[in-house]
Nucleic acid binder design. Structure first.
Lengths: 206, 206
DNA sequence: TTGAATTGACTCGTGGGTAAGTTACCACGC
DNA sequence: GCGTGGTAACTTACCCACGAGTCAATTCAA
């Protein structure tokens, strides 16, 4: 039992403590956003004191960057894994969504953190966010480009806009799911399949 | 000429000044978001002093609420006007988008303000944002519901998710346009028509 | 006893909000 | 025409809460 905690108590190895702070920070950042979150909030959520966070992460930005790294690697990893499966078109989208639902099932805050509109723009943060968002956009541009080509549209700005739209569809599905914690990843994947079917006709099987 | 401005100079009627502050505030809030904007920023942009803003609007929230009201009424007005035209399905979506592009052409900041993710949640603000977003969602739910019914899907959560997706498609198109100031409303409307055509097949004419 | 982990109590800058004074316009009496 | 108060517009200079970041001390394991 660690119920009695007096000042200065060590007891927790550095790596464990770091993990614990990151988890708490992720939850709080995910729920409130970077801007609306104070370091004291995170400290309270982690059950430690504020200076300890500075000891471990240097700054509020530093802490957020680490959270973002966790979230980004989680998402990029899953996206790459899904891409390996070799599906194309809508099938690839469904596979990717399914993968994202499953990884987010363990860390629900990762999506909100990766998409936090109040995130600060410092040093390598852009690259970090970009890492997963750029990858998603690549895949989106590919699939969308194919669609537009079939339709006889080769306008670059059209491709650009359509990519942005498709990315937002993807994000919107994930966000909707995050707002409905009762829905299992499997159920959500099936829902996506139904919705895609309704929009694009029924011929979804490879 | 009002080039020489000494302390305490009146010179501007209350209504004019109010209009002027609102316009400046809208620009700044739209560009930086509510959270990242200080009242001093707005004062500087409007060419006046900070206390004057408090004199006119009471608080930072009050100022933002007024901006939001302007933006919301602009959008709701246009949405209603478009809805009057009696188009249905994708045609209605295109008409609405076209209307929104045209009203936003004069006040580009309105969209960003109405969709500011850092907006504070005070008193009647929710209603205000809701005013336009709820109306858009009603229309979305209607059109989407029709689509799902045709596809034989009567699941309520499916309808819910699909509505959210469609709303985000709409928002994404507008946002993309806001990020491309060189594109005229007309050109953007044509782009939307092309893109819808590419996705949903070509039978778009009523 | 040494040193790492940890904290209470601080500093300090920033930004929302205010009090009190300053300027200019506008009656109005003469 | 011209002082002269009244008042509305406007500003300078301030207060204060809050949150990022720091430091010296305190606790505990080895």
């Amino acid at each position: 039992m660690t119920s009695v905690r007096r000042s200065g108590t060590k007891g927790v190895a550095r790596a464990d403590r770091e993990e614990q702070i990151l988890e708490a920070a992720g939850r709080v950042f995910g729920a409130q956003g970077f801007a609306a979150t104070s370091v004291a909030d995170v400290a309270r959520a982690a059950g430690i004191s504020k200076p300890l966070i500075y000891n471990y992460f240097g700054s509020k930005e530093g802490l957020f960057e680490r959270c973002l790294r966790v979230a980004s690697e989680l998402l990029v990893g899953e996206i790459e894994r899904s891409a390996q499966l070799g599906a194309v078109g809508l099938q690839r989208a469904l596979v990717t969504l399914d993968g994202v639902f499953h990884v987010l099932d363990d860390r629900p805050w990762a999506w909100a953190v990766a998409n936090d509109p109040t995130a600060p723009d410092v040093d390598g943060l852009g690259d970090l966010i970009g890492a997963y968002r750029r990858r998603l956009e690549e895949l989106a541009r590919e699939g969308v480009g194919e669609l537009l080509t079939i339709a006889g549209d080769d306008d670059q700005l059209d491709l650009d806009a359509m990519t942005s739209v498709w990315s937002s569809v993807f994000a919107s599905l994930v966000t909707w799911w995050c707002a409905h914690p009762d829905v299992s990843p499997e159920a959500m994947s099936e829902r996506c399949e139904r919705l895609f079917g309704a929009v694009f006709g029924v011929g979804l099987d490879a």
